[in-house]
C-alpha cells in the first residue's frame, strides 16, 4: 500500500443476504487514517459490510479493495473487534489478548519473548497494563473494551474494523471508549470503521459518517449526511433530524410543530 491508496475502496458492490439486498451498487472510499462512523438501523447490514471488508462475505457483484489489495480473509494488517464477547472469560486479560497473537500459526500456545513484548505493548497502548493479570470476567464494561481493543491493535494494523463497540456500555464507558479510538489513531495512524446504532456518543471521534439504510448509503461529513433530506431519501419515508445542544436526534415522521429544522 502506498500513501495515496485508500484504506478501503468499494466499486459497484452488491451485498446480499438470502433474498435481502443489503447494499445495492455501492462505491466509496475510506482514506488512510480516517475514522468513519458506520450508522444505520438494526438489520441494515452494518455487520455484514464489516464482514465483507474482512473477506468473510463475498459480494454478489463489484470489487472490494482493502489496503490497496483485493479483499481476502487472513489479511494481517486489519484489526477486528466483533460484537460478541470472547470465550474463556475465566482467563486473565493478558491471556485473552495473547490468544490472538499469531494465533493462526501452528504450534503450541506458548509465547516467546517477542510475542510477549508485543502483547504487553498493545495493552500499554490502550492503558490496560494494570488489567493484564485480572480475570476477564471480573472487568467492567469499559475495562473489557480496553482489553478487546488491545487484542484488535496487535500487530499494529493499518485498518481497524469495530462492530458496535459501544453497545451495552454506560455513558461514561462509552465516552472512555470513543476517546480511545482517537488515541489509537494518533498512535498507529490507522483508519477506523466503527459501527454503532447511535451517533451521539461517536460524534467526538468520527471524521465522516457512512449511513446505511434499505440497501442505499450516504457517506460524508456528519452535517451533510445526518439531515432531514438525506435520511428521508435513504429511509424512503419522512424522518426529521433535530439538533439539540450539540446532539442529534433522528425522529420518524414529519414534525407537526415548527422544530429547528436542520437540512
Amino acid at each position: 500500500m502506498n500513501d495515496r491508496e485508500p484504506a478501503v475502496e468499494l466499486d459497484a458492490v452488491v451485498l446480499a443476504q438470502g433474498p435481502r439486498t443489503l447494499l445495492a451498487d455501492a462505491s466509496f472510499r475510506v482514506g488512510q487514517g480516517e475514522i468513519i462512523g458506520l450508522l444505520g438501523p438494526n438489520g441494515a447490514g452494518k455487520s455484514t459490510l464489516l464482514r465483507a471488508l474482512l473477506g468473510l462475505v463475498r459480494p454478489r457483484a463489484g470489487r472490494i479493495s482493502v489496503l490497496g489489495r483485493p479483499v481476502r480473509p487472513g489479511a494481517t494488517r486489519v484489526g477486528y473487534l466483533p460484537q460478541t464477547e470472547p470465550n474463556g472469560q475465566f482467563l486473565s486479560a493478558w491471556d485473552v489478548v495473547a490468544a490472538g497473537a499469531a494465533g493462526n500459526r501452528l504450534g503450541l500456545p506458548w509465547r516467546g519473548g517477542t510475542a510477549r513484548a508485543e502483547i504487553d505493548a498493545a495493552l500499554a497502548e490502550l492503558g490496560a497494563t494494570h488489567l493484564a493479570g485480572r480475570r476477564y470476567v471480573n472487568l467492567s464494561g469499559g475495562e473489557r473494551q480496553r482489553v478487546r481493543l488491545a487484542q484488535a491493535v496487535l500487530g499494529r494494523p493499518a485498518l481497524l474494523l469495530l462492530d458496535e463497540p459501544l453497545v451495552s456500555l454506560d455513558p461514561a464507558a462509552q465516552a472512555e471508549t470513543v476517546a480511545l479510538l482517537r488515541a489509537i489513531r494518533a498512535r498507529l495512524g490507522c483508519a477506523i470503521v466503527v459501527s454503532s446504532h447511535e451517533i451521539n456518543p461517536l460524534l467526538p471521534a468520527i471524521d465522516r459518517v457512512l449511513y446505511l439504510a434499505r440497501g442505499a448509503l450516504a457517506l460524508g461529513p456528519v452535517d451533510q449526511v445526518i439531515t432531514t433530506k438525506v435520511l428521508s431519501r435513504l429511509y424512503g419515508a419522512p424522518v426529521e433530524v433535530v439538533r439539540v445542544g450539540g446532539r442529534i436526534f433522528v425522529l420518524p415522521g414529519e414534525a407537526t410543530l415548527p422544530l429547528d429544522r436542520a437540512g
Binding site: 477486528y80 470465550n87 490472538g100 499469531a102 493462526n104 504450534g107 503450541l108
Partner: peptide
C-alpha cells in the same frame, strides 16, 4: 494437539477474529 494447539486456542477464545484471520 501440540501442532494445532495455537489455532485451537485462538478459535476457542475469539471464534470470529480467528475466522477473519483465515482459520
Amino acid at each position: 494437539l501440540a501442532l494445532i494447539g495455537r489455532p485451537v486456542l485462538f478459535a476457542a477464545i475469539h471464534p470470529e477474529i480467528a475466522e477473519a484471520r483465515g482459520i
